[in-house]
């Protein structure tokens, strides 16, 4: 028996999410008294693979021949590795790839799936795990009824832990099928930090009055090393690009620090940001609903407060 984590390299590098699932998998393996294995694919350097070992994984199965596999192929790669190491629990990241692969895997292995889990399972007399539901307004505890379990882990649910271990790497061979979904083109947004990965986010809403006023928002984001985001109406009227829209119908994020500037705090907006660790609200209306969801608040005019905050950050950094 073992726990198996799927670590997905991005251009040969393991992102933070891969270190999070490794740490999570290693902890579940410890609870069950078994080893944690990992499965990956493609051309990844030994140094990168060593980082996975350093986060608690004992063995890595790598299908090195695959290049940009689609989700059908990946589910075959993972299930082949699961067979090879007798995995009873399989963990993916709850990201674009994980959201496509985990459900396929669940059907392939007839293994119950819980997506977007945010905590370690409870293994007393069964296997239960919690996840946010109703767009973060509540949590559900789900029990998995099958022998084999599949989980996808919500980002920022567990800090990666380096434990100084090493992992043996072995080649994974098998029949992984043909590629049905091909990548034609990749477009990169210029310069900015990608929103779903950002540790800090500075977000602004209709209170900013117009797109010409976003300069100070970008300056604040730069000062903090943060990504920029916005409320839905701001993206809908075209003040900001659509990929910056956060909330129930936009991107859901859970950064360590979220600044909401001139955003009223409608429930659909909160649904996409209420997983943030620390929320700071700047709004000139003391009755803005967002203050109820905030850790820190500043009642004031954004056009006065934000420049002052930028100055304060500059002198803090010296």
């Amino acid at each position: 028996m073992s726990v198996l984590v799927f670590v997905n390299p991005n251009e040969g590098i393991f992102p933070k999410s891969a270190l999070e699932v490794s740490t999570y998998g290693a902890k579940v393996a410890k609870m069950l008294g078994v080893d944690c294995h990992a499965v990956t694919y493609g051309n990844v350097s030994d140094a990168e693979l060593a980082r996975i070992g350093n986060h608690g994984v004992k063995a890595i199965h790598r299908a090195s021949g695959l290049d940009q596999p689609d989700n059908g192929q990946l589910s075959k790669v993972i299930s082949t590795a699961a067979d090879a190491c007798g995995a009873s629990v399989i963990v993916c990241s709850h990201d674009l790839v994980g959201k496509a692969v985990a459900p396929r895997l669940s059907v392939r292995l007839k293994a119950g799936l819980v997506t977007g889990v945010n905590a370690l399972p409870n293994t007393d007399g069964g296997f239960s795990v919690t996840k946010p539901v109703f767009s973060g307004k509540a949590f559900a505890t789900e029990r998995i009824l099958t022998e084999t379990k599949v989980l996808s882990l919500m980002a920022n649910s567990i800090p990666p832990e380096e434990i100084g271990g090493t992992a043996a790497v072995q080649e994974l061979s098998g029949e992984f099928g043909t590629k049905k979904v091909t990548v034609k083109e990749i477009k990169k947004y210029s310069g900015s930090i990608a929103l779903p990965d950002a540790e800090r986010v500075v977000s602004a809403g209709r209170g900013l009055k117009g797109p010409e006023n976003w300069g100070m928002i970008e300056d604040l984001a730069n000062e903090l090393g943060a990504a920029t985001a916005c409320s839905r109406p701001v993206a809908d009227i075209g003040w900001r690009p659509h990929h910056e829209h956060v909330g129930q119908t936009g991107v859901a994020i859970r950064p360590n620090l979220y600044f909401a500037i001139g955003i009223s705090g409608a429930i659909q907006h909160l649904a996409g940001v209420n997983g943030s660790k620390v929320i700071v609200v700047i709004n000139n209306d003391p009755d803005a609903p967002f203050f109820k969801a905030a850790d820190y608040g500043v009642v004031g005019d954004a056009f006065v407060v934000v420049p002052k905050l930028i100055e304060a950050l500059k002198s803090f950094k010296g």
Partner: peptide
Amino acid sequence: LTTITKYTLPPSKAGV
């Protein structure tokens, strides 16, 4: 293959 056994509400914020 799975069943929900319980719901919980998030702890309320300490206050702004």
